[in-house]
């Protein structure tokens, strides 16, 4: 819902003008970033509030818990993509020169968003703070991913450069974020 509101707001405020590829790529990723901040920050807070953390800690190993949360978040963001990206295309009249690569960029980008945000969400839940802390902590960690995703999305819209290196970059970010999270998660989870 948050995503659709933002998307409609963006579409209204540009007033049907056809946007530059640079600009609309940046807008797409801003929408996805803030939506995932709003949605994913709840991932672990819910468990803390409902008091189910202890049971979960007894029942499963930390990496199992992390992978479960991560997969759930990835699924959540993918279904968000299914909603937002077609609407984005319809409302902002954006032509896409490389549709298949665009799909890959969106999927790899959102998977990366989910990976790093899951880890930050675990930290935020333990910190016992609500609201803006999630965005403050996640932004610097996600910035390389966002910049990379924006520039490769622009390439997909225009289709003027080779995309393979960009896809490799996004893939590597995913790998590093996931490995680091798996190594660090037990320190956050166990007390």
């Amino acid at each position: 819902m948050f995503a659709i509101t933002t998307l409609v707001a963006v579409s209204f405020s540009v007033g049907g003008a056809v946007l530059d590829a640079d600009l609309s790529a940046a807008l797409l990723w801003l929408i996805l970033f803030f939506t995932s901040m709003a949605g994913l920050s709840r991932a672990f807070v819910q468990e803390e509030e409902a008091g189910t953390v202890t049971a979960l800690r007894l029942a499963a190993r930390p990496d199992a818990v992390f992978i479960g949360k991560y997969l759930f978040n990835v699924t959540l963001l993918f279904s968000l993509d299914v909603l937002v990206v077609p609407l984005f295309w319809v409302l902002l009249q954006q032509t896409v020169a490389l549709p298949l690569s665009f799909l890959a960029v969106v999927l790899l980008g959102t998977a990366g968003l989910a990976g790093a945000s899951t880890m930050v969400a675990a930290i935020v839940a333990k910190a016992g703070a609500r609201g803006p802390l999630m965005t403050v902590l996640a932004f610097p960690v996600l910035l390389p991913l966002l910049l990379g995703a924006i520039s490769s999305t622009r390439t997909c819209f225009v289709g003027d450069k080779a995309i393979a290196a960009d896809l490799l970059f996004l893939f590597c970010y995913n790998g590093v974020a996931l490995t680091a999270s798996l190594l660090l998660f037990p320190y956050v989870w166990d007390e």
Binding site: A116, M119, V120, I123, K126, A127, L137, P140, V141, L142, L143, P144, L145, L147, G148, S151, A165, F169, C172, Y173, V176, A177, A180, S181, L184, Y187, V188
Partner: peptide
């Protein structure tokens, strides 16, 4: 513990900037 985890996480992801930014 939390701040140590965060500083390691940030330290691992930031080098990616070195790859992206000069390309752009």
């Amino acid at each position: 513990r939390l701040s140590a985890v965060y500083s390691v996480l940030a330290f691992l992801t930031v080098p990616f900037l070195v790859f992206v930014v000069p390309r752009v």
